[in-house]
């Protein structure tokens, strides 16, 4: 999908650069990349979530617009490359585990305008800096996610958690991930990454499970999981609101 958008917009001077966020590297992304016949866009991997800190990425998929002079002209916001409906609208296999059915239903209730990004980026392709979707510097800074001491401290804990995980100190990493989740509960990349690392589910659904194995809830090391957390905060709060253009 991102590859298709890159091929459409590249002749108009816009490059799509995809950044795979995963502490464990690119291995988990290989099925997604293999599904693309030929990758012509720039695809990179971020094993330390550096773009979370630098650009205010708090969930995926999110995108940042950067102009020809390397100025950010739209801060991190929900981005969807096509006009497809969300995962919750897809036909589900009959043999899907109950948790995955519940997750798909919750995902279907996430209230984001999936057409906004495509409309906006095509307007930028056509009108460049004159596009109504291009924001001023003040709007870009104000439109980036909130970062006070709690969020910044969460970022430091998350970075330590990653470092300890990569050094094999799993218990130590979990302590820092839990603290990151407590201090910045709106950062879903911190949660989703840690939950994925803790997953004990086998098979192709493992990377989407994001919670305890049924019957083994006592072994789950986190306060929350994807299904309980999105239920608690409400699907409409899953992504930050985009900065809308003037009427």
């Amino acid at each position: 999908m991102w590859e298709d958008l890159h091929r459409e917009l590249s002749p108009q001077g816009i490059d799509i650069v995809t950044v795979c966020l995963d502490v464990e590297g690119i291995e988990g992304a290989e099925p997604d990349l293999a599904a693309v016949d030929e990758v012509t866009h720039i695809a990179v991997v971020d094993q330390t979530h550096v773009i979370d800190e630098l650009f205010g990425i708090v969930n995926v998929p999110m995108a940042v617009w950067i102009d020809e002079d390397l100025n950010i002209v739209r801060p991190a916001e929900f981005a969807w490359p096509g006009d497809r409906e969300g995962a919750g609208a897809a036909q589900l296999p009959d043999d899907l585990p109950e948790r995955m059915v519940d997750m798909a239903q919750a995902a279907g209730q996430i209230q984001v305008d999936r057409l906004f990004f495509g409309t906006a980026v095509r307007d930028w392709a056509q009108h460049g800096a004159r596009s109504n979707y291009v924001l001023s510097e003040d709007q870009v800074v104000a439109g980036s996610v909130r970062r006070g001491q709690d969020e910044a401290t969460a970022a430091a804990h998350f970075e330590l958690g990653q470092a300890l995980h990569q050094r094999g100190d799993i218990d130590g990493s979990i302590g820092h991930f839990r603290e990151a989740h407590r201090l910045d509960p709106n950062n879903w990349t911190y949660k989703r990454q840690a939950w994925e690392l803790a997953s004990r589910v086998e098979g192709p659904l493992a990377r989407f499970w994001q919670g305890p194995v049924p019957g083994q809830e006592d072994e789950w090391p986190y306060e929350g999981d994807w299904l309980s957390d999105i239920t608690a905060v409400g699907p409409k709060n899953y992504y930050p609101e985009p900065v809308m253009p003037p009427e």
């Binding site: 490059d15 799509i16 650069v17 940042v64 020809e68 390397l70």
Partner: peptide, 21 residues
């Protein structure tokens, strides 16, 4: 090799964060 954002000077860039999880 590596990709540098600085090399995008002169092109517009949409940097998309995604994840396999």
């Amino acid at each position: 090799g590596v990709w540098r954002l600085a090399d995008q000077r002169g092109r517009r860039t949409v940097m998309v964060a995604w994840a396999p999880w």
